[in-house]
Simulated scan of single mutants.
Amino acid sequence: MAFTLPELPYDTSALEPHIDAQTMSTHHGKHHQAYINNLNNALSEHSQLHGLSITELMRKLGELPESIRTAVRNNGGGHANHAMFWTIMGPNGGGAPTGAVAEAITSAFGDFETFKTKFNEAGTKQFGSGWVFVTADQSGKLELVAKPNQDTPLSDGKAVLMGNDVWEHAYYLKYQNRRPDYLAAWWNTVNWNAVNERLQAIKNGQLI
């Protein structure tokens, strides 16, 4: 079964003024769709892989036929990363984290402001295109990980709790070359309830 573009759980204008509607529309409908199209094309002649979820596919990256490994790494990673990205944002987001996520952040980083600073620094320092992720294990321990291009911690056997896209297509229409401004504003879109749901799923043994 071919991968398909997940619908946004909110309107393209819902994250304004922090992320503008045009960026959301292009990012979701054009960029994410292109990753899915390219991934499906790469997998089209490999029916033995068609039953795998995107998480399973990225975790098995090193086992894939060499002829499609790079395409799956780039485009499968693009699909996995963006599918996560849309779900952890939402209208009326932001503020301080709550629940188990707040406790995990305090445990790993000391406090939320320190966590945000380290996260934003990692995003600013990521050369070229890439992502900043927070991974979690089943005990709830968090780790900050930066990855180039569309690489994903899933391929390292880690579960992704949350992350931010620092490719220019994620912010250039509104912020131009001011990536630090985008990173700072992005926190106003984070849906902490959704992040808490992801943490609970990870603790339950689900790689999402």
Rank of each mutant, 00 (worst) to 15 (best):
A34N: 12
G29R: 02
Y10G: 00
G78L: 01
A83K: 07
S25N: 12
S44G: 05
N81V: 05
H79L: 12
I36F: 06
P9N: 00
P6K: 08
N75M: 04
G76C: 06
T12F: 09
S44R: 13
A34E: 13
S44Q: 14
G29P: 05
L39R: 05
E56M: 10
E7I: 09
N37K: 11
A80M: 02
M84F: 10
H27S: 11
G51T: 05
A83H: 05
A14W: 01
P65K: 03
I36C: 06
E66K: 12
N38M: 13
Q48K: 13
S67G: 06
E45V: 12
A42F: 03
K60R: 15
L52C: 01
I68A: 08
Y10C: 03
L43T: 05
H50C: 09
E7R: 11
S67L: 04
A80N: 00
L5P: 07
N81P: 05
E56W: 08
A83V: 09
K30L: 14
G62T: 01
L39T: 06
N81C: 09
A83S: 15
Y35E: 02
P65L: 00
H46L: 10
D11E: 15
R73E: 10
Y10T: 06
T12M: 08
T70I: 13
P65S: 02
N41W: 10
T70G: 11
L8T: 02
T70F: 15
K60G: 10
M84T: 09
K30S: 13
Q33S: 12
E45C: 10
Q33M: 10
M58D: 07
A42M: 03
L8Y: 03
S67W: 04
N74H: 13
A71G: 09
H32V: 12
H32G: 06
A21T: 08
A42H: 04
L52I: 00
M58L: 12
Y35T: 07
N75A: 05
T23E: 02
I19T: 08
V72K: 00
T70Q: 15
N74A: 15
D20A: 07
G51P: 05
A71S: 15
G78F: 02
Y35P: 03
A83L: 07
N38T: 15
S13G: 14
A80I: 02
N38P: 02
L39C: 04
A14R: 04
P6N: 09
P9K: 07
L49F: 01
L64I: 06
N40A: 01
L57T: 03
H50K: 11
G51N: 06
P9G: 05
L64E: 01
E16G: 09
I19D: 03
H79Y: 15
